[in-house]
Amino acid sequence: MALIELEHIVKTYDLGLSKVPALRDIHVRIERGEFVAIVGQSGSGKSTLMNIIGCLDVPTAGRYRLSGRDVSTLSDDELADVRNLEIGFVFQSFQLLPRASALENVELPLVYRGVAKKERRDRAVEALGMVGLEDRMKHKPAELSGGQRQRVAIARALVTQPSLLLADEPTGNLDSRTGEEIVRLFLDLHARGNTIVLVTHEPKLAGRCPRAVRLVDGLVIADGPGREVAAANAEALGAEALAQFQAAERAVQSGTRP
């Protein structure tokens, strides 16, 4: 049984005057243990898809089964429980509680699971150890570097031992060297058996994932080994960049004409 089964997923945003389709007909299956990048430009619907996969949002139509359970019709509270039990989030902007220490941040999901205090602490310490932050546990997010903050966020995502690790542009706010560390951490986590879905607009990053799904205008237009999808994406980007350049050139020429 696949971990994620998305069938005919449609998401339409109702803006009153007009309905904006964000996802039009998404069909994706992701097996346990996979490391999949969802790649696309801004506006392609990748964030919407991530929100639906992460049970932060529900589709307008279609069926989403997570671990065999149809979650597209669950109530708000049930979705909260699914997020707590099945999913670990890593966000671009880290999303840590600013007033809580690294340890307390990592403990938070276990609070909502009703884990006893002692066990909570032990597991949080263990998770922080996995991301190499055992000596920064008492620090507040403001006292940590960007890379360290993202490690805390990863530890928070791992502490519940979720079925799915869901990362949204995890390197987007980091310099390239720190970003590279985080990518290595994800590859390492994948090697240890975690299922990871990573949303990114960087073809380079997608290229390093075993599998990539490329979205354009709310449709899956490529699904395959990361390197191939990324190359196609780069071509598309290149073509678009060329078109933009030519348009700009024409504008300049027409502007300079008397």
Binding site: D77, A80, D81, R83, F89, L97, Y112
Partner: peptide, 14 residues
Amino acid sequence: REIGIRRAVGARRA
């Protein structure tokens, strides 16, 4: 944002 974070990691509305 804190509300968002808490909801993301499993806090219910209540």
